[in-house]
Nucleic acid binder design. Structure first.
Length: 201
DNA sequence: TCCCCGATTAACT
DNA sequence: GTTAATCGGGGAG
């Protein structure tokens, strides 16, 4: 399997987000074990986007977002959850794609232990669940997905563009008119409400 | 310093 | 459908 190159990430968030569907997220744990899951749901956060953590400029928390593309931005929220994003676009822009859900493929027992459940469907269904299953927290903030050895993304079987759906992003109260959540209609996504088949190619 | 609330989840009714 | 859990970020004062 080939790893997604820097150039893949160096594009607009609204392009990278749907393009990530079907790609395989890989985590190598300190123990050497590898986890794999196929991405099925993402969200784009662009420049000048009121819903983006980068909207109000660079801070200690979101600094990685303004760095080079292809790195991981991890944030902590609700006092208990971690979520992971891929930094995209050009350095200095502050664009990212939130990884929201995936189909577990490999390392299921390890994911189940991390999640505290054996229910396959709940291992990676939701951004915080995905991060927990993959043992991702703030210590991986800034990890290089292109050249690093802890986390990366491999080219997976491509998703038919006609199967990509889109709709409003989840859990935000601004910019709801931007249909920047992308997903495929499978049981692994966090929510199947909304969204006709996307018009985008 | 204080204070509100969040790119959520799980356990309820 | 509703709500508690739980705490760091960042705007206001």
């Amino acid at each position: 399997m080939s790893r997604l190159p820097r150039g893949f990430h160096a594009r607009a968030a609204t392009v990278v987000a749907p393009a990530l569907l079907g790609q395989v997220l890989v985590r190598r744990l300190p123990s050497g074990e590898e986890l794999r899951a196929r991405l099925v749901e993402t969200e784009a956060y662009e420049q000048d986007d009121p819903a983006s953590h980068a909207f109000r400029g660079i801070t200690a928390r979101n600094g990685v977002m303004f760095g080079p593309p292809g790195r991981l931005y991890v944030y902590f929220t609700y006092g208990m959850h971690h979520c992971m994003n891929v930094v995209v676009g050009r350095e200095g822009e502050g664009c990212a794609v939130l990884l929201r859900a995936a189909e577990p493929l490999e390392g299921l027992a390890v994911m189940g232990r991390a999640r505290g459940t054996d229910r396959l469907r709940d291992l990676c269904r939701g951004p915080a669940r995905l991060a927990q299953a993959f043992a991702v927290d703030r210590s991986l903030d800034g990890a290089d997905l292109v050249a690093g050895d802890q986390l990366w993304i491999e080219r997976g079987r491509s998703v038919d563009p006609m199967d990509v759906r889109s709709g409003p992003r989840v859990g935000i109260r601004v910019a709801t008119e931007r249909p920047w959540r992308f997903w495929v209609d499978e049981p692994w996504v966090s929510s199947r409400r909304w969204g006709p088949v996307s018009a985008r190619s």
